[in-house]
Simulated assay, not measured.
Amino acid sequence: MNNNNPTIEGIYEVCIGITEPLPMIQYWQQFGYRIGKTGELTAPTVKNLYGVNSNLRSIRLYHQNVDHGLIRLMVWEKPINEGLEMTSMKVLGNRWATSLTTDVLNILNHVEDGKLAGLPITYTFPQWEIIYKTEKGRPFIDPAVGVREMMLLQPLTRQVLFERFNYTVPEYGKIDRTSTLKTSQFTHAGMIVQDDSKETLEFYEDVLGLLRARDNSETSYESSEAARQIFDLQPGEKFTLTAFDDPRSSTNWQEARSGRMYIIRFPEEIKLQSGFDKSQPGCLGMSLYTYRVNNIKYYFDRVKNSTVTQITDIIDNEFGEHSFSFVAPDGYLWNLISK
C-alpha cells in the first residue's frame, strides 16, 4: 500500500483492564500520560464488540501530541479474570509494552522503593545490550553504543523500559522530559507465538499491510543476558524476532518509526503454557492492542476474507469510533478503529 491507499498506523493503544481507575491514572501520569477521551458502553454492545458480558467505561490516556502508543484503561463492571498478572513472559498470549526513557536508573530506584514498601513487583536489573550492529569502540576511549533495558511486571502492567546510549533514532519514541520518569509513549508492544512455518506472520504483512521491518533476528540463552532474564531462557533455548511497523517506517533502523509490534517466536519443540484466556478483553491487566486505520470498511473486507476467526460487525465503540474485533491466525484478539 502507498500513501494514496487506505493505510494503517503503528500500534495505536495498549488496553489495560482495571476495576479502579484512579490508581492507574496516577501511575501512568508519572510516565507522561494524561486523561483524554472517556466513554461508556452497555453490556449488550460490549458483548457484540468485545465478547464480554459486562458494562464498560473506558478512559483514553494521551502522551504529548503523539498519534500512537496510547493507553486505554478499560474499567470492567464484571471482569472475567485477573489477567496475566505477574506470570512469566515466556507464555503464549503474553502482552507487554515498551517505553524509551532518559533515566532507567531513576525508574529502578522507584522499583526498589516499591519492593521495600511491599508492593507486588517482579523486575530485572537494567542490562547492557548491543541492539544495533555498529563498529565496536575501544572501552574507556570510544563511546559505548547500546541500551540498558529492564523488565517491570506488576499485577496490572507488563513493561519493558530502555535507555539509549550514544545513538539516536529520531522517529522512534518521543520522551516527555517534564514527566517524573522521563519516558516516551509506548514505542512498541510484544507478543509470544509458536509457529515454525511462520505462516501466521503473513497475516500482518499481507492482510493488514504492515511493514516487516526485521525478520528472523535470533536471540539465544548464550547471546543475551537481558533476554535470558526477561524471557526465562534456559541453556540451549532461543527465539527469533519479527517486527512489524507502520508502513511509513523503514527497514533502515535509523529511520524507523515507533509503534512497532514485536513478535517473539519460540520453536514449537519448546512446551509453552497458554495464557490467551488471560489476555483478551474482559481480563484485567494488558489484554488488547488496537490499530487505527482510515477506511475501516476496506480493512473489514480484507480481514473478513482472510483466515481470522470471531470477526465482529463494525460497531461504534465506547468513544463513538467505528470499530471491529477479530482473532488473528496466531490466536491474538485485535481491535481496529476508524480514524
Rank of each mutant, 00 (worst) to 15 (best):
103 D>I: 11
104 V>Y: 01
104 V>S: 05
105 L>G: 01
105 L>W: 12
106 N>S: 13
106 N>G: 09
107 I>S: 01
108 L>E: 01
108 L>Q: 06
110 H>W: 11
111 V>L: 05
111 V>C: 03
111 V>I: 15
112 E>R: 10
112 E>T: 15
114 G>T: 03
114 G>I: 00
114 G>K: 04
115 K>H: 09
115 K>Y: 12
116 L>D: 15
116 L>H: 12
116 L>F: 09
117 A>R: 14
118 G>M: 05
119 L>K: 14
119 L>P: 02
120 P>G: 09
121 I>V: 07
121 I>T: 04
122 T>L: 08
122 T>D: 11
122 T>E: 10
123 Y>Q: 01
124 T>I: 14
124 T>K: 12
124 T>R: 10
125 F>G: 05
125 F>N: 07
127 Q>L: 11
129 E>H: 13
130 I>S: 12
130 I>C: 13
131 I>L: 12
131 I>H: 11
131 I>S: 13
132 Y>H: 08
133 K>V: 13
134 T>L: 03
134 T>C: 03
135 E>C: 14
136 K>N: 09
136 K>I: 08
136 K>Y: 08
137 G>P: 02
137 G>C: 04
138 R>I: 05
138 R>E: 10
139 P>T: 02
139 P>W: 09
140 F>S: 02
142 D>V: 06
143 P>G: 01
143 P>S: 02
145 V>M: 01
146 G>C: 06
146 G>K: 02
146 G>L: 06
146 G>E: 01
147 V>N: 03
147 V>G: 00
147 V>D: 00
147 V>Y: 01
147 V>C: 06
147 V>I: 15
148 R>H: 13
148 R>E: 06
148 R>D: 01
149 E>M: 12
150 M>H: 06
151 M>C: 09
151 M>V: 11
153 L>T: 08
155 P>N: 04
155 P>R: 01
156 L>F: 04
156 L>Q: 00
157 T>F: 01
159 Q>F: 15
160 V>C: 08
160 V>W: 06
160 V>T: 10
160 V>L: 11
161 L>R: 06
161 L>G: 00
163 E>Y: 09
163 E>V: 04
163 E>L: 10
164 R>H: 07
165 F>P: 00
166 N>M: 09
166 N>E: 11
166 N>I: 10
167 Y>C: 07
167 Y>N: 04
168 T>K: 15
169 V>Y: 09
171 E>D: 13
171 E>F: 13
172 Y>D: 02
172 Y>M: 03
174 K>C: 09
175 I>C: 08
176 D>F: 07
177 R>T: 15
179 S>G: 09
179 S>A: 13
180 T>M: 10
181 L>M: 09
181 L>D: 00
182 K>Q: 13
183 T>R: 03
183 T>N: 01
183 T>D: 00
183 T>A: 05
186 F>M: 06
186 F>V: 05
187 T>C: 13
188 H>P: 01
188 H>W: 05
188 H>N: 06
189 A>V: 15
